[in-house]
């Protein structure tokens, strides 16, 4: 399997008045055209890892890595211009909540077309055709109607499909999905996941799926990275999750209610300072 993304010793720090906050502390992994899940609690650094790969950390953040390469391109050495050319074109990102991540005053169709026209020279008519085809690919039944709607006029599930369409239209090879279903209704979550799964498989893309839901990730991904306090504590194949070693992973697995057993009181997640060391 060829390596699409190579991350070695990635660090993201934020200097503040009261000292340096280390959001990501030496994360390393490799990714081919597969589905990798990154799991952790709030503040574990999983989202920051995704944003650092995209080059979308805020200006005050300091990103360093021994190696951060996408398809042989050294991202640490790339100019802002080169990284922008990659974004949306070869590496794309799905954000959490379509209510906030879609521009409220621009029609959905124009937002999709915008991605395409940022990277390819296409005519207006062709861009529209391809956007409509993309809307159809994310299983929106009436693409021509949805094309002209504004974000507030569609449901959360529909909005997230539009988001996927917007990020996939330029044909990226790597997709970073940052909690793509956390803001959606449970009933819609599976639909959106299926669409994402299908498109990723069809197009042979690499996927980084960031979530706090270990079970969801393990059912959806090939491999899982568990993060705690900015570090990777365990890296494991999803199919072998029940053989996980690290007490934190076991804790994450164990703190869920089960439908067939009385689990009262639920065990609380253990957090030991030595794991963060």
């Amino acid at each position: 399997m060829s390596t699409l993304l190579d991350v070695e010793d990635l660090r993201v720090t934020y200097p503040t008045r009261t000292g340096v906050i280390e959001a990501v502390r030496g994360v390393s992994f490799q990714l081919g055209r597969e589905r990798l899940g990154i799991v952790g609690e709030s503040g574990s650094g999983k989202s920051q890892t995704g944003r650092a790969i995209m080059g979308l950390t805020p200006p005050q953040a300091q990103v360093s890595a021994k190696k951060l390469a996408f398809d042989g391109i050294d991202l640490m050495a790339a100019s802002p211009r080169e990284r922008r050319a990659l974004r949306g074109n070869r590496i794309a990102m799905i954000l959490q909540d379509p209510k906030y991540s879609l521009d409220p005053v621009m029609s959905i169709g124009r937002q999709i077309v915008e991605t395409l026209r940022a990277h390819e020279r296409v005519s207006k008519a062709e861009a529209r055709e391809r956007a409509l085809a993309m809307l159809e690919a994310v299983q929106i039944r009436d693409p021509a109607r949805v094309f002209d709607l504004h974000p507030h006029e569609v449901s959360g599930g529909m909005g997230q499909r539009a988001m996927i369409a917007m990020m996939l239209i330029a044909g990226p090879e790597l997709m970073i999905a940052d909690e793509p279903t956390s803001a959606l209704d449970v009933t819609v979550q599976l639909d959106v996941l299926k669409i994402l799964d299908k498109l990723v498989a069809e197009r042979g893309m690499g996927l980084i799926f960031i979530s706090h839901d270990l079970r969801l990730v393990s059912s959806f991904c090939d491999r899982v990275i568990v993060m705690y306090a900015g570090k990777v504590v365990e890296q494991i194949k999803a199919s072998e999750l029940r053989n996980a070693q690290h007490p934190y992973t076991l804790g994450l697995l164990d703190c869920m209610p089960r439908i067939d057993a009385d689990r009262h009181p639920l065990p609380v997640l253990d957090r030991k300072p030595e794991w963060a060391a």
């Binding site: 922008r84 974004r87 074109n89 954000l95 521009d103 915008e114 988001m163 917007m166 330029a170």
Partner: peptide
């Protein structure tokens, strides 16, 4: 706002 992050993720200038 988040839509600005999304716009950056799209690779807009």
């Amino acid at each position: 706002q988040e839509y600005i992050v999304a716009a950056r993720a799209k690779g807009l200038s």
